[in-house]
Each structure stands twice: as C-alpha cells, then as structure tokens.
Design a protein around this nucleic acid. Sequence first.
DNA 1: TAGGTGACGGACC
DNA 2: CGGTCCGCCACCT
Length: 110
Amino acid sequence: MALSFDQRVWRAVALIPEGRLATYGQIAEQIGAYGCARQVGWALRRLPLGTAVPWHRVVNAQGRISLSPSREGSDWMQRELLLAEGIPVDAVGRLPLALHRWQGDCGDVS
DNA sequence: TAGGTGACGGACC
DNA sequence: CGGTCCGCCACCT
C-alpha cells in the first residue's frame, strides 16, 4: 500500500473520537514516527478543508491551538469546532488537554 | 548536494 | 506560570 506520511497522519487523526484531543507528538508516535511532531503538523497543513479528518482535535503538547501564520484565519474555526464538541477553550487558546487527551485505547499513562 | 525552514517537544530560566 | 533556547526530522528552494 505504501501510504504517504500525510496519509498515515490523516488516518490516525481520523481515529480520534469526538470530544477527545490528541497532540502532534501523539499522532507521530501513533504512526511510528516519534519525534516527528512537526511532520504531523505539515501533513495537517496540507490537509484540505473539505476532508472528514477532525484536524481540529489535534493540538500541540502545550494544549494550545497552534496554527501557521498562513492560516491565521483558521484558528477561530478550530476553536469553534472544539467548542462544538464540548471542549472548552480558554481565551488564550488553552485547552483542558489533560482531561480530554486521547490515549488511543489505553486508560491512563500518568 | 547543501542549506534553511517549520500547525512541535522538552528543558531551562 | 510564561517566555526562551535547542534539538528533532522531513520537505522545499
């Protein structure tokens, strides 16, 4: 099959249940590319808006909405999408990542 | 081929 | 708790 890196990222992101959050590093680890969190961001960056991939559920490890200056108009959209899923977003763009972090299939890792 | 960059992460101050 | 620095690796020029 030889799926592209971005394709694998999109697939992993698509597995995130509604109301859950995942970090770029988590997705990277999920696809077997631990340490390549930035590459995950690129994959989402190349992701068109017309896809069914819940890219808005992916945030950085700081629990903040990270966006590229080129997409400065999408930050509000992601926030709205997260709020629609029941995830409160702080005024500074901070999210309760610890309370919504998607463990993939495990219960806890702390 | 080499260099620079980045939707990040973790450590440090 | 927040701002800053370095390191990470794939992609672009």
